[in-house]
Amino acid sequence: MAPSPVSSAFRTTYDRLKRRGERQYALMRALRRGRRLRALEDRSRQIAPADILVFTTLRNERPRLPYFLDYYRRMGVGHFLMVDNDSQDGSADYLALQPDVSVWRTSDSYKASRFGMDWINDLLRRYGSGHWCLTVDPDEFLIYPHHDTRPLRALTDWLDASGARSFPAMLLDTYPRGPIEHAICAEGQDPLDLANWFDPANYTIRKNSYYGNLWIQGGPRARCFFADSPKNSPALNKIPLVKWHWRQAYVSSTHTLLPRGLNMVYAQDGGEMASGCLLHAKFLSSLTQKSAEELDRRQHYAGSKEYRAYHARLGESSSLWCEESRQFTDWRQLVDMGLISPGNWA
C-alpha cells in the first residue's frame, strides 16, 4: 500500500533535514581535522581562477607519483593538492619539489579522519570553491569519452554549458594477465602497461534513494574475494569530478556527495548521461606487501575486510585473470560495453 501523502511529505522533509545535518557534520569535521594538516609546501597562491585541481591522499606511494602527476598534467590539470599521511618512503619530499604541487602532511589516523575524507573535504573547502575538482587516489586514472582528443577542460566546459555540476566515473579494477606479484611496476612506468585487463560485464547497480546515488559493485574483487559475501564487496561508483562550492562535502569516500543533487548523475528517463571511469591499477606486485602492512595498521574500511580478503587470497600466488577478461584498448571499447557513455557529448 502506498504511504499517505502526509507521512511521505513528513518523510521527505525529515530526510532532507537529516542530510543537511550530515553535510554540516562533515564540514565541521573537515574544519577540525583540517587544522591538523601541516603545510609542507603551499603553492596554492599559484592557482589561477579557471584551473582544474586534483586532490589526493596518499601513503607510501613514491614509485607511483611521477607517472600519476604526468598523467593528469597531460590532461590539463592546473594544480595538485595532496595530503601525505605519514609516508616513510620520501613521497612528501618528492611532492614538495614539484612546481605545481601543494603538499600537506599529517600523522593522524587515516581511519579517524574517515579514510582521509576529512582532510580532502577541508582542502576542497579552502581551495576548491569555484573550480572543477578531481579527487583521485594515486592508483586511479581517469578515462572519459574523447579523452584522447579533448583535454579535461573541454569536458568541464561542456559540463558547465550543460548545467552539470558533477561527473561520474566508476572504478574499473584492472589487473595483469599473470600473477599479481610478477607485475612489478618501475618508477615512472605506466601501471596500465602491466595491469590492463578488466572484467567487462559483471557489475550490479542499485539505487540509494536516500542519497540519490547509484551503488555499483562487481568486477574482479567481487568475483574472486567476495563471491560468498557479495554484500561486502567494495563499492565501485564514484563521482570524482565536481564543480566545487564550499557548502558541498563528500560524505563517504568519493562515492557519495551532499547536497544530494550532485549524486544524480544518471538519467532516469531511459536515456544515457555522459560518464567516464577510473582505471584502478591497484593489482600490482606492490599490493602484496601493502596488504600485509595495511592489515597490521587496521586503518581501512569495515575492519579492513578488503585487505584481509586480499591477504588470504594473495598469500598463495594468485591471479585475477580469467578467460573472459578483456584487455583494455581505448575508451570506445568501454563505450561499446556500456561501461561508460558519451551521452549527449558528440
Partner: peptide, 17 residues
C-alpha cells in the same frame, strides 16, 4: 543516445525508472 539510450543497459549514466 541521450534521449533513449541503449536497450537493456543499466550503467552509471543510465538507470531508468
Amino acid at each position: 543516445r541521450r534521449a533513449r539510450g541503449r536497450p537493456g543497459l543499466r550503467s552509471q549514466g543510465r538507470f531508468p525508472n
